[in-house]
Computed example of a mutant assay.
Amino acid sequence: MVQYNPLQSLPTEDDLPDSDDTPVDNELQVLIPSLLRSILALLWADRMDWFFGVNMGVYYEVGQPAIVPDGFLSLGVPRQKRENGRRSYVIWQEQVVPQLVLECVSQTYGGEYDNKIAKYANIGALYYIIYNPDYGRRDQHDSFEVYRLVNGHYLRQSGNPVWMPELALGIGVEQGTFESWTQNWLYWYDLHGQRLPTPDTIIARERQRAEQERQRAEQERQRAEQERQLREDLLNRLREKGIDLDDL
């Protein structure tokens, strides 16, 4: 675990670059962590003690360049910081090491299984997730791997999803739809292995509820119209027989 001296004069996020200027290989490296963040925004809408960064520099040691995970989760920090948000995540400012980091392996190998895993262990990130749906055979790894830090070393966790009690979250991979794109995505899960709702799920439910309400209103309108027509037919038949209800 990296130790920080709070008495030392340290640079702030305003003094440091906000990224490593390395472009992502494909849009999924942004969409996958963005989906995870959007689910948390629904789940923890009333909580202000968490932050999920996407492709944001994490500074862990003075004088060293930032490491930039595709996504990371920190609990116990302000969700919103400063008017324009964080420029980067500076551990000696935040005083909280991200509890979870995510790397999505791309065509250009980024050291996810060697250099980065060593850095994250040194930083002290409790969970390290590697998502490698396209290049697992090349790297001789599974497409979805979760590691937990134990005595300074990462141990592979089994299962899909994997429950993380310290975070009260599970994480796993499953086919679904996000931004009209159907494929395998990473999702959060509850203790019972149930996938937590996504924005698309909520929107679909609301559309279904609105359609059901529209159908119910249409059925009620048709019922009222039928009743009106039956009453009108009855009055006409009575009038044909010389009976006018207005005279009664």
Results as ranks from 00 to 15, higher is better:
S38N: 11
S38A: 15
I39E: 12
I39Q: 14
I39G: 05
I39H: 00
L40A: 00
L40N: 00
L42M: 07
L42Q: 06
A45W: 13
A45P: 04
A45S: 15
D46T: 11
D46H: 12
R47G: 00
R47N: 00
M48C: 13
M48A: 10
M48D: 14
M48G: 12
D49Y: 07
D49M: 01
D49F: 01
W50M: 00
W50C: 10
F51G: 02
F51E: 08
F52C: 02
F52G: 00
G53P: 00
V54F: 02
N55W: 01
N55T: 10
M56A: 14
M56T: 13
M56C: 12
M56I: 04
G57Q: 05
V58M: 05
V58L: 02
Y59E: 07
Y59H: 06
Y59N: 03
Y60K: 05
Y60V: 06
E61F: 07
E61D: 07
E61L: 14
E61G: 00
V62R: 14
V62P: 04
G63Y: 01
Q64W: 10
Q64T: 12
P65E: 01
P65H: 09
A66K: 12
I67Y: 03
V68K: 02
V68L: 06
V68E: 08
V68F: 03
V68T: 09
V68A: 06
P69H: 07
D70T: 08
D70Q: 10
D70Y: 03
